[in-house]
Simulated assay, not measured.
Amino acid sequence: MDLTVVAYVVYLVVSIGLTVWVARTLSRNGRIFLSDVLHGDEKLADAVNHLLVVGFYLVNLGFVALYLSGDGTITTTREIFENLSTKLGVVLLALGVMHLGNVYVLNKIRRRGLMEREQQPPVPPQGWAAPAAGV
């Protein structure tokens, strides 16, 4: 079998495996964060979580597929490792950037919600009192 095909197969197996593992980890652990961002609305948190996972899969698997093609033929075992390290490194960086982007956006939404909660008084005003004279 051609070494280029071997490199492609290893790249696809590892990249898809990493993408699935990261997506499952983010989905499982991000649900609590989403629930807090969305003020405890569990159904909405589950729906947003699922949509984020689908988008994550689409973007990352699309990137993996587009990045599959190589520059040339691979003739030695050393070239397999060099090619795979470059491709997998770029895929890992893309996964990391996607994750940080999601966390950044969700944290901005969470902070906005916290600021809105802080601006509302904890108890509604009970009445109005006139200022004391001479004070």
Rank of each mutant, 00 (worst) to 15 (best):
W128Q: 05
P122A: 15
W21C: 07
W128N: 02
W128A: 08
L93A: 15
Y57Q: 03
V48K: 00
V9R: 10
N107F: 09
I74Q: 01
Y104C: 05
V6H: 07
S85R: 09
V37Y: 01
K108W: 11
E82S: 10
N49Y: 00
N107W: 06
M115S: 09
L114C: 01
A45P: 00
L61I: 14
G127D: 10
V54M: 11
V135Y: 10
Y8D: 15
N107Y: 09
S27D: 12
V48M: 03
V123D: 12
G55N: 09
L58A: 10
F81Y: 13
R112I: 07
F56L: 08
M1I: 09
L34Q: 01
L44Q: 04
R111M: 04
R110N: 11
Y67F: 15
L51C: 03
F56N: 06
D2L: 10
Q119W: 02
L12W: 03
V5A: 15
Q120A: 13
S35P: 00
F33D: 05
L3Y: 14
R111H: 02
N102Y: 11
M98P: 00
P124M: 08
L26S: 08
G17H: 08
R117I: 08
R31F: 01
L34P: 00
A94R: 03
V6G: 05
S15Q: 10
E42R: 09
Q120L: 14
T25P: 01
I16L: 15
V105S: 04
G134K: 06
Y104A: 14
D36V: 09
M1T: 11
L93T: 12
T4V: 09
T73Y: 09
G55A: 12
A45G: 05
I32S: 10
S35R: 08
G113R: 06
Q126C: 04
E79S: 06
I32W: 06
T77I: 12
T4S: 15
W21V: 13
Y11A: 07
G113I: 02
L34C: 05
A132D: 07
K43E: 14
F63I: 03
D2K: 13
E79A: 12
Y104T: 12
D46P: 00
Y8V: 06
Y67Q: 11
E116R: 07
G30Q: 03
E118V: 05
L61F: 12
V97S: 12
K43Y: 04
F56W: 13
N102Q: 14
V48T: 04
M98Q: 11
L52M: 10
D71T: 13
V90H: 01
A94E: 13
A45F: 00
A94L: 09
Q120S: 10
Q120R: 11
T76H: 02
A23C: 13
D2V: 03
V64E: 03
V20P: 04
W21H: 11
V20F: 15
P121H: 07
R28I: 13
D36Q: 10
V48L: 03
G134I: 03
D2A: 14
V10K: 05
L93D: 09
F63H: 02
A47Q: 10
F63R: 00
G17N: 08
Q120N: 06
L95T: 03
G89L: 04
F33G: 13
L114M: 11
K108A: 15
V91H: 01
L66G: 15
L34N: 02
K43L: 12
V105T: 04
V97P: 02
R111F: 02
A45V: 04
L95I: 11
L61C: 08
V59N: 00
G101S: 13
A23L: 03
